[in-house]
Structures are given as C-alpha cells and as structure tokens.
Design a protein around this nucleic acid. Sequence first.
DNA 1: CGGAGGATTGAAGGCTATCAAAGTCCGTGG
DNA 2: CCACGGACTTTGATAGCCTTCAATCCTCCG
Lengths: 231, 231
Amino acid sequence: MSSCDTCVVRNRAICAGLEDREIATLSAMGRRRTVAAGEPLIWEDDDSLLVANVIDGVLKLTTSTEDGREQIVGVAYPSDFIGRPFGQTSKASVVALTDAKVCVFSRSDFDRYAREHPELEHKLLERTLAELDRTRSWMMLLGRKTAPEKIASFLIEMSERLTETGCAPTLGPARRFSLPFSRQQVADVLGLTIETVSRQFTKLKNDGIVELPSRREVEIINRGALVSLAG
Amino acid sequence: MSSCDTCVVRNRAICAGLEDREIATLSAMGRRRTVAAGEPLIWEDDDSLLVANVIDGVLKLTTSTEDGREQIVGVAYPSDFIGRPFGQTSKASVVALTDAKVCVFSRSDFDRYAREHPELEHKLLERTLAELDRTRSWMMLLGRKTAPEKIASFLIEMSERLTETGCAPTLGPARRFSLPFSRQQVADVLGLTIETVSRQFTKLKNDGIVELPSRREVEIINRGALVSLAG
DNA sequence: CGGAGGATTGAAGGCTATCAAAGTCCGTGG
DNA sequence: CCACGGACTTTGATAGCCTTCAATCCTCCG
C-alpha cells in the first residue's frame, strides 16, 4: 500500500487520474516531509533539485533583489505543484508560511517519469497555464493599482482561495478567514510597505467594510464595497 | 508541400522536432495571416477561439481595468506561442506592436491535436514554464523597483530579447536596437506614466549611458552602468 | 508648409515611503 | 498569577518620488 492511498489531495493534485500501477511507481519515487512555518524548501537561483506537491499548508514563492527587497510572486495551497521541472535552476525561493506537508520528488526522477506519462504532463501543463493567467492578473495589480485597490483585491482573492480546502465543490467565497500572512508578507505580496498595509486595513475597519477580530483574522462585512474598491 | 517547409521559425517554435507526417497534419489545420501594427488578434475575456505561433513581428499581451488603465503582461516574439489552449476564455488581449505574421489555429483543433501528440505538449509545457519564470521576475520589477531601476532593467531585457532574431546561436546582447514600443507602451510595461519614462530616458542620455538617435532607436553606451542601475 | 500625434519639459500636488515612537499580543519565567 | 521581554502592529510626522496637469516641442506625412 502506498502513502498515496491516504493522500488528502490525491484527487486534486496532478496525480489525479493516474492508474494504480502508475501511482505505485510515483509513490516509490516520492516521500512525504513536513516543513515548519518559516522554513525554506527551495532556494532562489539554486540548482533545481526537487519538485513537490503541497498536501497541507500554505507556502510562498519569492524573489529578492541583492539589497534585500522581497516580492512574493506566488502562493501555493494544498494540491498545488511547486518547483521547476525541466529546468536547471529555480528562479524563486519557496518558504512555508504555515506548518506544511509536502510530497517531494527528485527533479530528475520526476522529469523522467513525466516524459513517459503524457497524462501527467498534460495536467502539469493545465496547471501551469492557469498559474500564468493568475500571475498576469497580479501584474496588473502591481503595476497599475493604488494601495486601497491592492488591499481590496487581495482580501477578495484570499476569501476565494482559502475556501478551496475540502473535496466539496466550491461553496463560494469565505466570509471569514484566517490570513496565512503577516502584515509584512501582505506588503511583500502587494508591493507596498508594512505601514501602508496597516493603514489601509485600519481604514477598511473604520469604514465598516471588514472586521479584524485578531491580527490574522478577517471578516468581510460589506463584500460589495470591497469589490468596487478593488477597481 | 506545406507552408511549414518555408517557415522561418520552423525549428524554434513548438513545431520543432515533429515528424513530416505530423507537420503536414498541423499545417492543414493552421493558416497564416498578417496582423498590421496596432491591430488586435485576441480580445481580453473573449472566448478563447484561436491560438497561434508568431512567425515575424512583435505583439503585446495586455490586461486592462474597467476605467482604462492598461498593463502589458507579456511580449511575444518570433517563434513564441500565443493564446490560451485548454481554457474557455483568454485573460489577456493580444495586439500587434509591429506588422506581424502569425500561424493561426482554431483552439479546439489545436487542443485535440496537442492531446494526441505528447511531444508537442511537452514543448508547450517547457515554453509555458519559461514564460512563467520571466513573468515572475517581472513581478519583482513592478512591485519593488524604482523608476530608474525599471527603465534600466527594461533596456537590458530589450537588448537581450531583440537579438534572438536569426537561426544563429545567441550572439550576446545587442548594443544598438530599435524599440518595438512607443513611450506610452514602455510605460504600460513598467507600470509608470509616459512622462516618467521620458524623463528617465533623458536622464540616461544626459548621463552618457545611452544614445537615443531617434524615438525608437537605442544605443547602449555604458552597459555596466545600466546593469548596476537595474538593481 | 502645415497639421497632428507623439514626445519632452515644467510646475505643483498627492500618494506612498521613510523615520520614529507608542501600543498590542503572546510566550516565558519568576 | 503576574511581570517581563520581544516581535509584530499601529499610529504619527515628514519627506520624496512619481503622477497629474499643462504647455511646448519634435518629427513625420500629407
């Protein structure tokens, strides 16, 4: 019996739809590991040695300038695929935001296996295309939106992404959720400073659009207002 | 004889490596068309009806806000693939920056063909992964770099991309090149205003780092300075 | 030559960053 | 149980970068 049999993302990750025999082979190549919150899994500009499926938790993908400025360029949730197959180096670091479980493969093993299994490559292609779409719409946010628009867009995206946690079909955006980001990390996603993020959160609270029960908790009171603020 | 036989990007586009028989099938599905500078090929949020290979010319991928702000989210050069396969809608408009030639396929035909040809899907996957890497490094630029850094990064990228025009292996970055962008389009790539772009260009000229023989021509005088300005 | 669109230049203002300090939360240890 | 320490967050004051608004200047074509 392979550990895949009990995998909670078995039917949503790129492994979905593979035959039992194939799963067994893949399972033999991969191993589970946990990553503590704040712990890195992949380093920017390092050789691309491993790829992984996210089983549980949230991780950030970041790039940095030499002088230490950081930009979060992606966020990986359960069932997402991380790492850079078919390439020599990884262009982004991957660090866990929460305690996380991942299913890790050696990149060379994975590459070889993928080339022999078109169905797997096809799933990976679909995911990569969807991620590219998301990334491009994020570029619009970074390049052309104001701080209030960025914050509103961010909260809406969070409320949509953070519901995709179960096997149930999407049940609409969450009204209340717990951010996997600190204020600094929100700033790193949006291309802002921590002070600006804090001020915008406070303003949304004062305007009665959201409630902030604790540092990480968000409750959306007036979603319509948030949507129209998002620009 | 298929038109592919004379295609100048035949060995660099995703068609590379396909067997003669496969090329013939693909050729029967596709048709060449020209796109005049400024003319759109794909509209944002429209049904994704076609995909294409760029044969000649440069095209921009853009997204816009309701109130008309535009962000260029990608640029397609000869041999690049454009459009959104395996998806219902296209998230970006595609507009020619220069007069362009493209090889167009109906998306449904292409999807069907691709699913039957793993080698083609693999090439598409490699391209998509590379494009995602590039897009992510552009996010860092948009979110964290200053106007002078953005302009310097842009000119360096242009000098690298605009040499990839022939069959010859890369011969290093171009010292002199012709921008396929107006000042407004440069602004739309970098998330700046046209005035800021203009001022930064003038400053680089006054500092002796570049020459600007005409509106579209750029000659890099001091590449080292440009690289260090890029941050 | 003259017009039109794009580009440059200038002046002023606003948005966000920066610098600085106070406040809050939470785990630790007395 | 409560005091303490440290990290994170909020708030305030100021500065500066980039935008906005406006006018002028190219440069390309008819």
